[in-house]
Design a protein around this nucleic acid. Structure first.
Lengths: 215, 215
DNA sequence: AGCAATATTGCCAAGTCGGCAAACTTATGC
DNA sequence: GCATAAGTTTGCCGACTTGGCAATATTGCT
């Protein structure tokens, strides 16, 4: 029953992850609630039941803690892509992988109201200027993983080939742009159509003849 | 004789820019020289002959000051692109615009040894982890300009069309990736071939059949 | 010259950041 | 199971950052 990813983690590692998650979550929750300026590290530490000094063992800045969620989301894109059938065309697989991470949770059980908070949080992360740098840094970090997955997928000789590197960078760029747009133009609908359009532009090499047709 | 961009700047604005440039330059110079950790704001202010408090009127953090040069470089890419003949194919024009900003100065007069320092500085900016976030932020800021220029060039209906936004993001991404590569694999040669290869990938929509042919 | 607008600076309180060492918890070998 | 190693949490604390406020100085304009 135990997943591969869980067998070799002792109590130590498990606790560590819990603490990290608690801190990151507390940071995000408090900042969304009270506003970036009105939250200090001590508040976050208190909310996570650890000392202020411990906070700093996990994150070097408040911004990093808040952006940690985003980092994991982008890493999940890479994981999702890795899990997809190799038969799927690259850009389709990528679109789906990204989309999966930017649709509301749609949980079966608990928090239904969380659909709203989810959006509220994503918006905060990508909107608050004080963490913009950290968010971009997180995306860049995840991009390394992404490049590896893409390399595997297209069977690049080495991970160091230009192709996967550039492709991964482009994916990061497209996701950033599209999510930005989606948040601006009323995120009421799904993000998928926008993603499709954007990746279509990329896949066709930005051929200028048709910008709005194709549905 | 006076350029449009220069006529409406009085002594005030001129001094302001000088101060800003002096601070940014001092910050970069000192950090490259002594290492990021061993430079404090006061040092930079002193080197630029202003009070520490004034430093903070121009830049909110040390990182921002150091990255200011990068921001301007990326803005110059947009300017250069704007200045290029509309007849030039988009990706060619972009490649050239970028290349122009990442070739050693090749100044006619003074500092010849500056060619080395130039590289040393670019490397520092793009390598030092502590400013990575700021650098990405600067690129993102310049990207807004870039999107406008691209919109003009391809004659997009509105700047808010998806096309120019995505294209600009892709350019930023490609530049980041390529410069990174260039710095890693020995920046002895020109960056242009790498740029060409990368933009070729983009222009062809990452068609997988040929990754290394085409010269 | 004289007034308005803007820039520089000092003062200073609140907050961040990270090194160090003591106290505590988990892992491992025997 | 117990001792010891390895890793984590915490308090203490000094160096540094960050930004508000108000006094002073400089520039722009008539």
């Amino acid at each position: 029953m135990s997943t591969n990813a869980e067998i070799d983690v002792g109590l130590r590692e498990r606790k560590r992850r819990e603490t990290r998650a608690a801190l990151s979550l507390a940071a995000l929750r408090l900042c969304v609630q009270r506003g970036w300026e009105n939250v200090i590290v001590d508040d976050i530490a208190a909310a996570a039941n650890v000392s202020p000094r411990t906070f700093r063992n996990y994150f070097s800045t408040k911004a990093e803690a808040v952006a940690a969620g985003h980092l994991e989301r982008m890493l999940r894109v890479a994981d999702e892509l890795r899990a997809r059938p190799a038969s799927e065309p690259l850009w389709t697989a990528i679109t789906n992988s990204v989309a999966a991470q930017f649709e509301p949770p749609a949980q079966k059980s608990e928090a239904l109201l969380d659909a709203n908070r989810w959006l509220e949080r994503i918006r905060f992360i990508l909107t608050e200027p004080s963490i913009h740098g950290e968010v971009l840094k997180a995306s860049a970090a995840a991009q390394v993983e992404l490049a590896e997955v893409i390399a595997e997928r297209v069977g690049a000789r080495r991970v160091k080939d230009l192709y996967p590197q550039v492709a991964a960078a482009v994916v990061t760029a497209v996701v950033g742009t599209v999510v930005d747009r989606w948040l601006r133009d009323g995120p009421s609908g799904s993000i998928v159509p926008l993603l499709r359009k954007a990746f279509e532009l990329v896949a066709t090499g930005f051929s200028e003849n048709k910008t709005k047709t194709s549905k």
